[in-house]
Amino acid sequence: MARPDLNLLVTLDILLAEGSVARAAKRLRLSPSAMSRALARLRETLGDPLLVRAGRGLVPTPRALALSAEVSHLVQAAERVLRPATLDLKQLVRTFTLRTSEGFAENFGPDLIARVGKEAPGVKLRFVQKPDKDSGLMLDGAVDLETGVVGATTPPELITQALFRDRYIGAVRKGHALSRGKVTSALYASGRHILVSRRGLYKGPIDDALRQLGLEREIVTTVGGFSTALALARASDLIASVPERHTGKLRAGMHSFPLPVAIPEVTISMLWHPRLDADPAHRWLRGIVRDVCAGPRVRRVRT
């Protein structure tokens, strides 16, 4: 069975509303003859004359009257479906799942939650830990947005946008020997260190840079996240080396200093799946994340 021409619904809706072939043709920007042919097709399709002559005008048949309200409703519904999506933040009810490295939620989360609550009270943010670089949860739709460093293992189909650049610094407790005076590479290497590695490694880029200077540091312990490293350093004489902006609030009350070795800065980006790219609510969320991560700019540890 051939599928009906759904364009005829629009034609029928206007014909029934106008009760005139000429006026309907004008609204549809068709010639009167083209409109007459469309009416003929409708009559054939529905098996009813729809509009019949009465004096100088046309009047609807009982079938046309019965169809009028339903056809109008269908056309309006179709127009809503085909209209670009609009966003009413005050009425939006949704939960967004953000997968972030340790420290992101602690440092940027409070401002994100406050901004979301002010603009869209019905929206909730759900932060989940990012123990590795596997983006499978985002590909499966379980995660709406992810933050981190884009690398060779990042799925090519994901969309990425840079948020900020970050550099590594040293952090020690107040009163630590390294909190007094300039920290040289030799002085830094002579201390006892905490290594942050999600994969449980025993060396990192800092050790490679020290090796080029003929130095080697003592790594006392390896932990999986920045907050753990800073908690240990806060309560001991250990040295934590962490990204500056990523741990701004986590380092409150501690002494921070620039690393005395050259370590490349890292770019923190947000990542999302293309299926969410045009979603107005997701676009709004991305804008808030950009704004919160962009400023106000933190004062950098002086070199």
Rank of each mutant, 00 (worst) to 15 (best):
K90T: 10
A69T: 13
G47K: 01
R251L: 03
V149C: 02
V81T: 02
N107R: 05
F127V: 00
L42I: 12
R192T: 11
D88Q: 12
E265Y: 01
E218M: 04
H255F: 09
R245D: 04
E18Y: 02
H255I: 09
G141A: 05
V150K: 00
A235P: 04
V196N: 03
N7E: 15
L213G: 04
R180I: 14
L137V: 00
V81Q: 03
P264W: 04
V10A: 13
T86N: 05
D144Q: 12
L238S: 01
S190T: 05
V10P: 09
L39Y: 12
K203T: 15
R245K: 15
P205G: 01
R99D: 04
F164L: 06
K203A: 11
D207A: 03
L16M: 10
L28W: 08
T86F: 07
N107M: 10
R286C: 10
V223I: 10
L285I: 03
K182D: 09
V261G: 11
V116H: 08
R198N: 03
S236P: 13
V242T: 06
E157H: 11
L87C: 09
V116R: 05
V266Q: 00
M1C: 11
H273F: 06
P131I: 07
W284M: 02
L39N: 10
P60G: 01
A77K: 05
A252M: 08
R167H: 05
A152K: 09
L98H: 12
R283T: 15
A231W: 09
G47Q: 03
P62S: 04
L271S: 14
A229F: 15
E18P: 03
P205Y: 08
L92M: 14
R37D: 09
L50W: 12
K249Q: 13
K174V: 06
R80K: 03
R99E: 12
G225N: 10
L9A: 13
L46W: 14
D277C: 04
S68K: 15
A152Y: 13
S179N: 00
V150P: 04
A54I: 07
V71N: 02
G175W: 07
A229V: 10
S72W: 06
R3V: 05
A189G: 00
R199L: 07
R126F: 00
L12V: 13
L98C: 10
R56I: 01
R251S: 08
L201D: 12
L230R: 08
L213Y: 07
M270A: 06
H73A: 06
R83C: 03
L125G: 08
M138G: 15
P205E: 12
A189P: 09
R198L: 11
S190E: 13
P296R: 00
T153S: 08
L178P: 02
V220Q: 13
M1H: 14
D48Y: 09
E265R: 01
L67A: 08
A177H: 05
A66M: 12
Q129K: 09
L201M: 03
E119W: 00
E106A: 14
A142Y: 13
P60N: 01
Y188N: 00
K174P: 01
K174L: 01
P205A: 15
R53S: 06
P62H: 04
